[in-house]
Amino acid sequence: MTEYKLVVVGAGGVGKSALTIQLIQNHFVDEYDPTIEDSYRKQVVIDGETCLLDILDTAGQEEYSAMRDQYMRTGEGFLCVFAINNTKSFEDIHHYREQIKRVKDSEDVPMVLVGNKCDLPSRTVDTKQAQDLARSYGIPFIETSAKTRQGVDDAFYTLVREIRKHKEKMSKDGKKKKKKSKTKCVIM
């Protein structure tokens, strides 16, 4: 069974824990209790493949930012979460993405942009803004509501699919490099 290491990042209060708990335990946590770091595991079937999701729910508070490099190193894919009623959390996505790329030393890291709290009427981040940002990053965008469960499975499952595509691409690139290195030079 394939294991996928997913990391949920975003500013404090955007609903990272609520999304994760909704996926794992099928219930909505409405009281806000700032996370330092929590880890969850769940076995699911995605596109006919049974897999184990190892999900790291991270601290959004700035005082825990020193811990970010460590979990970013171990993560295979990242859910970059903002709240649709919090423009600052949307603007912060850029910083999370840049930090992930720096730590992973790669421009090509599996990510999904997630606009959470889409059940709320007080939207300050337009869907088109988020779609445009995701398009500019070359990553999928999904709106979710941890409260109603809308888009929750889709967000995590899409990230797994992005990781699969990335692994497939990397193995193809690896095979191309191996083929090239088999060419021999004969000096007579």
Rank of each mutant, 00 (worst) to 15 (best):
E3P: 05
Y4A: 07
Y4M: 15
K5D: 07
L6E: 02
V8T: 15
V9D: 01
V9A: 05
G10M: 01
A11V: 09
V14L: 14
G15E: 01
A18Q: 05
I21L: 05
I21D: 00
Q22L: 02
I24T: 07
Q25D: 15
Q25A: 15
N26R: 13
H27L: 15
Y32A: 01
P34A: 06
I36L: 05
I36N: 02
Y40G: 00
Y40V: 00
Y40S: 00
Q43L: 05
Q43F: 06
V44Y: 14
E49V: 08
I55C: 05
I55K: 00
D57H: 00
T58R: 00
Q61K: 12
Q61P: 07
S65E: 09
M67D: 13
R68C: 14
R68T: 15
R68M: 07
D69M: 03
D69K: 03
M72E: 07
C80F: 14
C80V: 11
K88E: 12
I93R: 02
I93T: 15
Y96E: 08
R97E: 04
E98Q: 07
E98L: 02
I100K: 01
D105E: 08
D105I: 09
D105K: 13
E107A: 07
D108G: 06
V112W: 02
V112Q: 01
V114W: 01
K117W: 14
C118K: 08
L120M: 09
P121C: 08
R123F: 06
T124V: 07
D126K: 07
Q129K: 14
A130F: 14
Q131H: 11
Q131M: 09
A134E: 15
A134Q: 10
Y137Q: 03
Y137D: 09
Y137G: 08
S145I: 15
S145R: 12
R149M: 15
G151Q: 13
D154V: 05
D154C: 04
Y157D: 05
L159R: 01
V160D: 02
E162H: 10
I163R: 02
H166V: 08
E168P: 03
E168M: 14
K169Y: 15
M170Q: 09
K172P: 12
K175S: 04
K176N: 13
K184E: 06
C185N: 14
C185M: 15
M188E: 15
